[in-house]
Write a protein that binds this DNA or RNA. Structure first.
Lengths: 207, 207
DNA sequence: CCTTTTATATGATAATCATCATATAATCGA
DNA sequence: TCGATTATATGATGATTATCATATAAAAGG
């Protein structure tokens, strides 16, 4: 069938969107080509008109997911002064909402332990996404005046690993009480470390 | 064949040991029954004389891995006074050695993002292991006088998620420089948070 | 309205996997 | 030394998978 010019592109994007969600929910190895196509309202055969291989799909899906994550990051801090923005991002990321919605959340938390087992190309796409996210966080840390230069870079790396780790481990544990506890104490300690917890901020105001 | 009385038990343990390594290296869904048996010097058919199902194997293997992790924990702090023990454990866990040897490391870092996709029973075994490890860490925190009671419990949970997160994320990233940086800054910040970094400890000595 | 183009569908292939029925052979007890 | 026991082997089953060759049909362009 010969559809309108944009039809194939629309289908392509629809497949990517579904794959992006499946990727986070089921992991790179749990994603099935046929299942993705079915969810997109198509059959499995047409897949290879869109993607050279499953790996190519996963890489494109991952890139889309990282881009969406960055958009969500920026939206979470929109309009806030840097100091509050930092706290708002941590509250947004290290949250019950994030924990309970892996399919729409950060790929770093969702794919943590899967990554060492993936192909070189997929891992390269992952690395690129991580670096971009870290860059955004570093900029925010500098703007907030918490640290500068290499120190801001190192702080971003360490803070990010604590954030992602808190969400990933809280997801891994099925006991809700323990999971909630980990999430909350991790969130508070990370904010305190950056001096953007409630106590530090109210101190700021008094000065 | 009728072997010596202990033969089956020895084989059983050998299978579990191999499965424990494969579980961490390849994830619960990457472990193949036939492959495990081959590594144990057997063929796939005999598997079901040892285990009711693959799930049962994975659960027993996970329990063994958690037990080994606790032994390694205790060995890492053996003979040290509590304050130094805490630092020694963090140095041991948040290390390049741990990062580069997933197959012999902590199951929490190795299986992070796989857990939400696993069966109820497997997750229950995971939970039990996490709770035991957290209990050990809480005891150590209390003995070191860093915190007590519920506060020690909460601190253990939050510290542990930061430790596991740092190792897991540093494994996920394939860029070695970035990975090293995350690991080192995370280790330092966690030690500082517990007051067991080099600066805090030398301060202690001066008092 | 008819031909050409091409996005998608049908169906097949080969690989991998967990599981199980049955066969084999090693050694223990007699 | 021989028969009973049983740990392990052989081989089959059915399910799932990625991939691809080929068929179909819809719509654009003349």
């Amino acid at each position: 069938m010969r559809y309108s010019e944009s039809h194939k592109e629309e289908t392509h994007l629809k497949i990517l969107k579904i794959a992006g969600r499946a990727l986070r929910a089921k992991g790179p190895d749990g994603v099935g080509v046929a299942e993705i196509m079915k969810e997109a309202g198509l059959t499995h055969g047409g897949f290879y008109a869109h993607f050279k291989s499953k790996e190519e799909l996963l890489i494109q899906a991952l890139e889309g997911v990282f881009a969406a994550s960055k958009r969500k990051f920026l939206k979470a801090i929109e309009g806030l002064p840097p100091h509050h923005a930092l706290g708002a991002y941590i509250d947004f990321y290290v949250s019950v909402t994030q924990r309970d919605n892996p399919a729409n959340g950060c790929p770093i938390t969702a794919l943590n332990s899967d990554m060492p087992r993936q192909s070189k190309k997929f891992r390269a796409a992952f690395d690129a996404g991580v670096k971009r996210l870290l860059g955004t966080l570093r900029d925010l840390i500098e703007q907030a005046g918490v640290a500068a230069g290499d120190e801001a870079q190192a702080l971003a790396a360490s803070v990010f690993s604590a954030m992602a780790g808190a969400v990933a481990v809280s997801r891994a544990v099925s006991d809700k009480r323990l999971s909630d506890e980990m999430l909350e104490t991790a969130r508070n300690s990370i904010k305190a470390r950056l001096g953007v917890d409630d106590a530090s901020l109210s101190g700021k105001y008094l000065q």
